[in-house]
């Protein structure tokens, strides 16, 4: 074998070996079930968006593009509250979240009406709900748009939703 050939084989082997050495990333996310009574959505559109992989992945992109990530991080929160935990200040149904996105809330959530179409708000809401591990496994996006510091949503253990009737007087947070 000629020496350039041998050299290129060695180089190829080196590249292949280096390729095997993938970066190790810690898996930190522990999804939580909703502990408060889950109120099924009364809006027929909810399931169209929640059970559709395309809509949810569009929501994921919008979450970055519309700067949601700046306040809520990738679900852990910051200037805004966490979205991956089991608490909803203003209701956790799809239509509550859509209302929150479009109209804002008095303690700091800005209104996005005029900046998003209603359809986009539903897409976003579908992604937001996915952060607290509620949606169907086959709908979830397989990879994150972010800096790979959390594990892919499809690898998360899903917990059962507590599906009990709402307590008297309990309603949407509008």
């Amino acid at each position: 074998m000629s020496s350039p050939c041998r050299a290129s084989l060695i180089l190829l082997a080196f590249i292949l070996l280096a390729g095997c050495d993938r970066e190790k990333r810690g898996m930190t996310h522990e999804p939580k079930p909703e502990t408060m009574a889950f109120v099924p959505s009364g809006d027929p559109r909810a399931s169209d968006y929640e059970n559709n992989a395309f809509q949810m992945s569009q929501g994921q992109r919008l979450f970055m593009w519309m700067n949601c990530v700046g306040c809520h991080a990738h679900g852990g929160g910051g200037m805004g509250p966490p979205l991956m935990d089991d608490k909803w200040r203003y209701g956790g149904r799809m239509e509550d979240i859509v209302y929150t996105i479009l109209n804002g809330r008095p303690n700091g959530m800005p209104p996005f009406k005029g900046r998003l179409t209603e359809q986009q708000a539903w897409q976003l809401a579908s992604y937001v709900r996915s952060l607290s591990a509620q949606p169907r496994q086959d709908v979830l996006y397989s990879r994150s748009d972010e800096m790979s510091i959390t594990e892919p949503a499809t690898l998360k253990e899903r917990n059962a939703i507590m599906n009990e009737p709402p307590a008297p007087g309990h309603g949407p947070g509008k």
Binding site: T28, A73, G75, G76, G77, G78, M84, D85
Partner: peptide, 13 residues
């Protein structure tokens, strides 16, 4: 004080 969720390492920037 948030409180924030440590499940997301990117929380609070």
């Amino acid at each position: 004080s948030g409180p924030l969720d440590p499940g997301d390492p990117s929380a609070a920037l």
